[in-house]
Simulated assay, not measured.
Amino acid sequence: MRAFQIVMSIAAMTLVGCATQEIATVRQADLDSWKGMPVEALDTHSLFSTMQMTTRTTSSGVEIRNYINALKGTYCGGTAFSANCVDNNVTCNNLFYIRNGRVFEYAPTGQCMTNDSVRPEKRYLSLIQAS
């Protein structure tokens, strides 16, 4: 009986831990921070420069850059008594729409979240303000 109580306690703690994880959200302020930024801010961004990037140009001359953030693998959780494994493929397509060398829209699609790390970086902003 005592072993059953221990297992149930561990299961309850695991569920509580999963329930308290931060919910992924896309913040409008993060998207808006890119409006009007020069494309050089993307070229030198420390996060986006680590992602695979594809680009295409529409017939009207709009460049569309997709910075792909993909996480693939098998993740396991649980206890020695009960382990659960899940194949997980999470992809966020960070789409930037560029015209005349400036970003006019940032539209992440897929399983995405934004935070301060996706905004134009302060070091780039300080360089353009100094010139």
Rank of each mutant, 00 (worst) to 15 (best):
A41P: 08
G101T: 00
S59R: 12
R65Y: 02
G17D: 11
E105I: 07
G77T: 06
A70C: 10
V103G: 00
T44V: 07
L125F: 06
M8H: 00
Q52D: 11
D116M: 13
A19C: 04
C76R: 13
Y67T: 02
S60E: 10
D116L: 14
T50W: 00
C76E: 05
K122R: 15
G17W: 14
D30Q: 13
G73E: 06
M53L: 09
M37T: 12
T14Y: 00
N69E: 15
P108H: 08
L47C: 03
Y75D: 04
K122P: 13
I64W: 05
Y106G: 00
Y124P: 06
I10R: 05
T74D: 07
H45A: 00
K72E: 11
G101W: 00
L127T: 15
N94E: 01
E121Y: 04
V26Q: 13
S82K: 04
S59W: 05
I128K: 15
Y124N: 13
T58G: 08
W34Q: 01
C85H: 01
Q52T: 09
V103W: 01
E105T: 04
N100A: 15
Q52H: 06
A130F: 07
A11F: 01
G78I: 03
F96V: 07
A11R: 04
C18D: 13
S131V: 13
V62F: 08
V26N: 09
A12C: 08
G61T: 10
A107C: 06
F4S: 15
S117Q: 05
Q111T: 13
F4T: 14
S117P: 03
E40I: 06
T20W: 12
L15V: 10
E40K: 13
L15G: 08
D87R: 08
T14C: 01
I64F: 09
V7N: 05
D32F: 05
I98W: 00
T91D: 04
P120A: 12
E105R: 15
P120I: 10
D43C: 05
L127M: 15
F96M: 08
T57N: 09
S59V: 05
R65E: 02
I68F: 07
V62W: 07
G36K: 02
I10P: 01
D87H: 10
A41Q: 10
R56W: 04
Y124L: 11
T44P: 03
E121W: 03
F96Y: 01
P108L: 14
T91W: 11
A80N: 11
H45Q: 00
N100W: 10
W34I: 05
V62R: 09
G61I: 14
Q28F: 04
R99Q: 15
Y75A: 12
L47K: 06
T20V: 11
E22W: 07
Q28W: 04
S126N: 15
A130K: 15
M53G: 02
